[in-house]
Design a protein around this nucleic acid. Structure first.
Length: 425
RNA sequence: GGAGGGAUGACCGAGUGGCCGAAGGUGCCUGUCUUGAAAACAGGUGUGGGUGUGAAUCCACCAAGGGUUCGAAUCCCUUUCCCUCCGCCA
């Protein structure tokens, strides 16, 4: 949610932001129009309310019945006017909120312009691509051959794009999750276990609703939604709260499955586990003072990079362009790891500084140590990392000529003695 | 799923139609006192919105939403959440 003052004081800034995102800049004028009508009604209705308050106090003091009745009759009319104006005001308010809720965050000046993900910029590439003496296989050949990944049964259970992991495959994913959570704990993040279903208000706070309703799985009976990312419940943790400045910064990490109903184009990313309706992710989240968010963003990027480097996966850091930038974000770095079997860079992390956008929507504030008005903190979120793609990269980078997979050193403590995954046929 | 009891400011807690944005207490801040601290005493201490350059002023908010009324924390309805008991269950 953007500050309404931005629209009133610097509408051109918001218009420009919408243009950068390939959106209709006319929305700004719709907001301003609704805002003007809203204030006009408030002006009128509050005068009437003040009058009613005053006269009602008088009525309580008046002894004479007829004089009293005259006032009461007059206030009945005023009351009707107030009711009518309040109703109009509610309508205008809703209209304005609806438009406002659909307007994305303003990109940071450093976010490069681009129409879509082709405009993203590679900032740096770290590590060297693994060289193989043989032709590396994609994970959808490797893993089923080892008996640790089963596509057919996933389809049988649920449908296309669902899969089953078993044995060392399931264990490898669990090891990755456990290792990442431990790593992030060492990096200063407090681990959270969260609900995987949330109510609409929670999704509104982080920005998924109302605009991205179609991407969510929903239990209509209870009006609950499956989380599309841990970012949603993490943002909601402090919704409607006023924190103390001394509480900040807050560093949180959580593992959750993620459920996304996105309609996937047939023929694109259909094979393997790269893109599914259900996937696992370890998330990092920071609440901090506005002046600290830039440093927090860089820390989070560094923390996410550490997962790649400790796994010895070649990766690159991408700066998202305006056309690819997420709805709530001002500035986003992506991490892509290289998968030699696919011969593809896989996006495993998005690390975003959303400024006060989510704090405004979720009504999260903090009280400054120095006396003064409460303020909105900044929030940042980043994957650390997305599981199926990290799993792909591990499997494909660590494969050997005989089709076995070496377990990365850092994961060994969770692998129950397995250091090489061999056929479990 | 059934029956009953609750929800008031950072916290505890009073308030069943107007004198209540809300007593009292705790906490916190400021001041007096003190070498310093404590104690004691005095004062202050919510959020959002409108108008105004400003001082200021008005409106709204006692779980949420609606209703009754000239006037609602207070009466009525609905919802949510919490507690107790029964049922069911990992």
């Amino acid at each position: 949610m953007l500050d309404i003052k931005l629209f009133r004081e610097t509408p051109e800034v918001v218009r420009h932001a919408l243009e950068l995102r390939q959106m209709d800049a006319g929305l700004v004028d719709q907001v301003l129009d609704a805002d003007a009508r809203r204030r006009d009604i408030i002006l009128k209705v509050e005068v009437l309310k003040a009058e009613r308050n005053n006269v009602s106090k008088e009525i309580s003091r008046i002894k004479d019945p007829s004089e009293r009745q005259v006032k009461i009759d007059a206030m009945r009319v005023v009351g009707d006017q107030i009711t009518a104006l309040d109703e109009t005001l509610r309508g205008v308010d809703e209209e304005m909120q609806e438009i406002l809720a659909g307007i994305p965050n303003i990109p940071d000046e450093r976010t490069p312009f681009g129409e879509d993900d082709h405009g993203n910029v590679v900032m740096r590439t770290m590590g060297t691509l693994k060289q193989f003496a043989f032709s590396p296989k994609p994970h959808w050949e490797l893993a089923p051959a080892l008996g640790i990944m089963d596509f057919e049964r996933g389809v049988k259970l649920t449908g296309s794009r669902f899969y089953v992991l078993s044995g060392a495959g399931a264990r490898l994913q669990r090891a990755l999750i456990a290792w990442m959570l431990d790593l992030h704990s060492r990096q200063g993040y407090r681990e959270y276990y969260l609900p995987f279903m949330v109510k609409a208000q929670t999704l509104y706070g982080s920005g998924q609703l109302p605009k991205f309703f179609d991407n969510l799985y929903r239990d209509a009976e209870e009006d609950l939604y499956m989380v599309p990312t841990a970012e949603v419940p993490l943002t909601g943790l402090h919704a409607e709260e006023i924190l103390d400045e001394s509480d900040l910064p807050l560093h949180y990490t959580a593992y959750t499955p993620c459920f996304r109903r996105e309609k996937m184009s047939a023929g694109r990313d259909v094979r393997g586990i790269k893109r599914g309706h259900q996937f696992d992710k370890v998330e990092m989240y920071i609440f901090c003072k506005p002046e600290d968010s830039e440093a927090a963003h860089l820390k989070m990027l560094q923390d996410a990079e550490q997962t790649c480097s400790e796994l010895n996966l070649p990766y690159r850091v991408i700066q998202q362009c305006s056309g690819d930038l997420g709805f709530a974000s001002r500035l986003t770095y992506d991490l892509e790891v290289h998968a030699p079997g696919l011969d593809e860079w896989l996006e495993v992390s998005s690390i975003s500084n959303v400024g006060d956008f989510q704090a405004r929507r979720a009504n999260i504030k903090y009280r400054p140590a120095e006396k003064g008005a409460v303020r909105f903190p900044h929030t940042l979120n980043g994957s650390g990392l997305g599981l199926p793609r990290t799993l792909i990269a591990v499997m494909e980078n660590y494969q050997q000529a005989d089709g076995s997979i070496v377990v990365p050193d850092v994961l060994l403590p969770w692998m129950g003695g397995i250091d090489v995954i061999k056929s479990e046929g």
